[in-house]
Design a protein around this nucleic acid. Structure first.
Lengths: 221, 221
DNA sequence: CGCCGAGTTGACCATGTTCAAGGTGGGTGG
DNA sequence: CCACCCACCTTGAACATGGTCAACTCGGCG
């Protein structure tokens, strides 16, 4: 389903909607580079552009009054982020690792009449991708145990960053914790538990080898 | 923000997008009625139409292999649901209480060229609403304690179903539990705790009077 | 070498789940 | 009209899980 939405060639479905890839949008400038942990935009800033990841990974998050941080999403290559429906960004975005992004600007209000069908389709496609991602994330957040969340998270990541059976995690344990609503300690312990169960293997903390994919799937149901 | 998206008159924002209410869609038939707990559609069925609530409330949910149920959303009057980007519904939908809905069908593939701008805007608006709702839901699911979740849930509900300071909950404790990733027992105990803290009051389980709204807001941060 | 951030591990404690039992209220049938 | 039922809600006690606090390891880097 996700691949459908992100597909480069037009595809259709029962509702008759085409979902297409980049057409009708022009970048506002060259590709921008951001160093690890560098801020891309912050909550409350004027949302003048939206962005697409061309390499690396971006996290968008919200800081709560109580000092906790909630990660809303990880954005990998090809993902669009910062597309807002208010005048300001309602999340902050930072580079998870060194990364590059392109910025886009929508046609101005007065030019709205000239927005073409394929641009609407384009926007709709971005929204649909975001919605699918949000639903996946909700599935993880609603799990009742840490082991289900981490198993689900690893499966999610393995779909994106699989290099010959090894999943390259670009984010820190803290990032994972804030994404799943857990603490760093629990994340760490749960990775250890999965290793004990012989479902995964790892020498370095961020290169996870999936030994038993079926077992992982069983956990996250 | 939510009100912006659902607004009946066109509004604009920094990105220059109009978000509009119903235009360009025709219902496939008369308003349909569903009795409490009646199924509207099920996961896996062909997604031939999408629907809008005209009265009452609908829940969409997913059943997991382990027997648990995850509520994806409550849909109140005006909310659109069942708008899929695959050929089948990926959730099931049921009436929370007696309710009425209208069904819509998108123009067929061959007629796609005739989809007008305002229809694209319309669809985009639905997607945006769904995305905003999903983000709110994620905020609740990521909370670390039951009391934060319930407080946030009550605030969410009070924005929809406030009748003179009293929030009318249309759904059961079980529904709330499955929506927040808790057990019925915890939901019940947490309502009792909020009552003890003098933040809410209730004689019947589903008519919740909010005594101290500020206190509730403080809890969910 | 020493520092520092990231990750891990342990012990203790708070919170939520589980299992079990009891209330409560609306609806039905005698 | 009352008695009964059943679904829904509440409450209690024991237990499991994850959070908290603290110490320790590891690897990179000046």
């Amino acid at each position: 389903m996700h691949s459908l939405v992100a597909s480069a060639s037009p595809v259709t479905n029962m509702h008759g909607l085409y979902l297409v890839a980049d057409r009708g949008l022009s970048a506002t400038g060259p590709v921008q580079h951001f160093a690890q942990n560098e801020s891309i935009f912050s909550e409350g800033e004027a949302a003048e552009v939206f962005l697409k990841v061309t390499s690396g990974m971006v996290r968008s998050y919200r800081l709560l009054d109580n000092g906790r941080r909630q990660l809303d999403a990880f954005h990998a290559k090809g993902d669009v982020f910062g597309l807002e429906f208010g005048t300001e960004y309602n999340l902050s975005a930072e580079a998870v690792c060194d990364c590059t992004v392109v910025a886009y600007r929508l046609p101005k209000l007065e030019a709205q009449a000239t927005i073409h069908d394929f641009l609407w389709q384009q926007l709709l496609s971005y929204m649909a991708s975001a919605l699918v991602q949000a639903k996946e994330h909700k599935k993880l957040l609603a799990s009742r145990s840490a082991i289900e969340k981490i198993a689900g998270f690893l499966i999610e990541q393995s779909r994106l960053h699989q290099n010959g059976g090894v999943v390259q995690l670009l984010m820190s344990r803290t990032d994972i914790a804030d994404y799943l609503g857990l603490t760093v300690e629990t994340v760490s312990r749960t990775f250890a538990a999965l290793k004990l169960l012989q479902l995964i293997e790892f020498s370095t903390a961020r290169d996870i080898e999936i030994i038993n994919a079926d077992g992982l799937h069983q956990l996250c149901r």
